[in-house]
Design a binder for these strands. Structure first.
Lengths: 341, 341
DNA sequence: GACTGGCACTCTCCGCCACTGAGTGCCAAG
DNA sequence: CTTGGCACTCAGTGGCGGAGAGTGCCAGTC
């Protein structure tokens, strides 16, 4: 495709993103130093429209990029927008004071929402790749134990376990020792295998209890590990809601309230190097077809523990959003690496 | 005030709540068996308007209740709306499967949002009234400990502590023992006092470390204990947003994203018997002046551990919302009492 | 004295119309 | 291939008039 046509597309995307109004040939030729007349621009526009990169809301209006237009823009036309020094400082100081994992996630999601002025989504780091640091068993009441897993990413998982038969404190202590001996430093992915061998190694009297404990433990750690997602900045959706979201933003809000939906959004296997941008119709979820989603993995080094990203109108500042998402992912990854969390 | 005038007010509130349209004298006289003519109703309406219970959006429209009108309705005119058996079952089964405290809160808030079709807000149970069940100290790295508090309400608080000097495992064990001996079964409100005495009781070598640990512990448990609030059902705000919220629902969404605001909303000392209803202008927060807030405390017996409630348009079904809020509070209280959580 | 029917009045809402202006498509000339 | 010119299209705006809902008031009735 000729260079000038691409320039025109880029100019239209940029103008439309900043003004929220269909952009016409005249103002376009003026504002961007294209060096050609409006008529020429019109020809290019007509051609771009024919190829599906632009549409007109109505015959006598300017042009608006289509999803396909944004896609081309993102893939070939947008230049990376570096963060300002001030932004970098802001990110760092914002994340610095986090006291625990929860706090890291909470701060990240708010930060990302503020930076991009969109809805931010941050998934809790997966337990899958982390290791068991310590297992604690607390005797709550006769017949009821609290099982607490502490992992090296600073995450703590807890579950109540019913043991049917009451246990003595000594038995609980034995159990605790057995669990710790077997599981500490093990990768969580190996836990099921290790657990299978455990019953043979303990006192016969403890075996039924152990089984209950292990069932719960497995469920807590393996079956539903990364189910949690934190959200912030929904108020940003209302920024230009009438323009960006056809009917209401109702379906979007509803979708964002569903953890399952959010997980699906973030769920595709990311590594922390590649960013995924889903534009409008490219989204699998019907209700999010009027939004664009920018996600990336984050974690330790280049193995991703989880994902984070933003959800906004298709008319979004893609370079800006992408830069912010990438930067936050990098910083969060660092925080997890040197675990203040 | 004469009975009939009150009947008229009640009828107007009920009609307006269900239709969302200003209600006129004719339809009112017809639909509710008031036994008087529209003209009479008009007289009563005019009188109610003069007293500030009603307004007209414009001269030739029906009447709409004012905040003061809703207030009178809530105080004197609304009858308690009992839950259906199906609703009770729904509540119970919805809350039953909760696996930990987090899950209890998450389920409650979603349940409340579904029942009322408003925004639901649930505060995490305060640590103030609970007791220390166990203190765990995990050696993360040399010079870095993870301090985990487990309370009898099932809540787990964790903090990383920098100890400056590295410790041996034995020292950590000593510290753990000392902490547990001193603090287990103590009410959290007593922890500061107990903690003050602690340094005298341990090995001189451990004192500086102990001090760091204790500082962090106090901060975690006392200074910012009930800071967490969970939210659900924001999509419900869009239900009739244009009608209920003058400009946009932007300010409302923004307010609801601020934990601080939510805490203030819930923060007034509730016990689990009295419900607080704030209608429109009665709210202290500017941004929530177009909403009504229904809150109640919940907890063990009649001492409240925290609050929960809903936020909706002033035009809300108050009896319904109040019933739902009260019911959920009761059930959640029960769940905390028999701590599956 | 309280209620009621009747009536004039007030406004919003809706559809209609003409006008304006931004923007387009096309064509013929450079 | 680019450009200026020109006719055309169509959303948006404001004015206007009729319809309808609802009110306030008044005089009459029980």
């Amino acid at each position: 495709m000729e260079d000038r046509k691409l320039d025109v597309l880029r100019a239209i995307v940029e103008d439309f993103v900043s003004t929220h109004e269909p952009v016409g040939s005249k103002s376009l030729a003026e504002r961007h130093g294209l060096g050609v007349s409006p008529a020429t621009v019109r020809n290019d526009m007509a051609s771009l429209e024919e190829e599906g990169y632009l549409t007109q809301p109505h015959t006598s209006a300017g042009r608006v990029p289509t999803d396909k237009g944004y896609r081309l823009f993102v893939d070939r036309l947008s230049s990376v927008k570096p963060l300002s020094a001030a932004e970098k400082r802001a990110i760092q100081s914002f994340l610095q004071g986090a006291v625990d994992l929860d706090d890291v996630v909470r701060r990240s999601v708010r930060l990302l929402a503020q930076l991009t002025r969109h809805v931010a989504v941050v998934q809790y780091p997966s337990l899958q790749r982390s290791r068991v640091r310590h297992v604690e068993l607390v005797h709550l009441q006769p017949g009821r134990l609290l099982l607490v897993f502490i992992t090296d990413t600073g995450r703590v998982e807890q579950r109540v376990v019913e043991t049917h038969a009451p246990l003595s404190d000594a038995q609980v202590a034995d159990l605790r020792t057995a669990l710790n001996t077997a599981l500490v430093t093990a990768a969580l992915t190996d836990v099921p295998a290790l657990v299978a061998e455990l019953p043979d190694k303990v006192d016969a009297g403890l075996r039924p209890v152990l089984t209950s404990v292990l069932t719960v433990a497995l469920e807590a750690l393996v079956d539903r590990p990364e189910e949690r997602v934190m959200l912030a900045g929904t108020a940003n959706l209302t920024r230009a809601a009438a323009l960006d979201f056809p009917g209401t933003l109702r379906p979007v809000l509803e979708a964002l309230e569903e953890q399952v939906v959010l997980l699906k959004l973030l769920g595709e296997a990311h590594d922390s190097a590649t960013m995924v941008v889903r534009i409008g119709q490219e989204n699998e979820l019907e209700q999010l077809r009027s939004t664009s989603v920018v996600t990336i993995g984050y974690g330790l080094g280049d193995t991703a523990l989880a994902s984070l990203g933003v959800v906004g109108p298709t008319r979004m500042d893609y370079p800006g959003a992408m830069t912010a998402v990438r930067a936050v992912a990098r910083y969060v990854g660092q925080m997890l690496g040197s675990p203040t969390s």
